[in-house]
Amino acid sequence: MCICKPILAAVLATAGIIGGSLLVAAAPSVTEVAPAAEIGKPAPAFTMKDTDGKSHSLEDFKGKIVVLEWFCPTCPYSGGNGRRSIHNNGAVKELAKNLKAVDSDVVYLLVDSSTAKMRMSADDLAKKDAELKKAIGIESPILIDADTSVAKAYGAKSTPHMFVIDADGILRYHGAFSDQKKTNYVLGAVKSIKAGGTVEPTYVKQWGCGVRYQ
């Protein structure tokens, strides 16, 4: 299936060149977006294995605030080893420290839905993530979303795309990790939840590399 489309495109391109005519390419299709998790509603349940094969379910963490960070090992904002990577430039470590000061029970999980994007099996992706986890010192479990169903259920669009779930399993914030300057929206959301207040903002447009669904 992968071959047919490019071959057809190449044939059309070749025909266009030979004929000396302008090539008119097909219009880009726009992917339909599955209904995503909603603020104020229960966060979608999940069960995923981490890079060590250990299974994690959202239900396991009932009574605790859960932070999900969508992750990709090759994304320069997320898993890469450049200065913009939040795992390489200290931003996640600083967040973890600050979260701990607010609530020592906060659970921080990474979710990798890159099987389609990287064209890798779940096992190969887990190996790659395990290597990077060790190389740049990621402390949180990296959960492998093998068929990208969890990404679809949450509406995760980029790496990093953050989700904050309260102790009752209700989604309270999703979107950007930070304003890429001083403000970390995840920390703000967790502080508000702990204080029993209203989370504001509940959504800030995410940035980073795209998530590709299967």
Binding site: C2, I3, K5, P6, I7, A10, T14, K117, M118, K128
Partner: peptide
């Protein structure tokens, strides 16, 4: 050659791991 390589590279081919 271009046709063959283009087909093999699958237009949106990734820079793979």
């Amino acid at each position: 050659l271009g046709l063959f390589l283009t087909a093999c590279a699958c237009f949106d081919a990734p820079v793979s791991a």
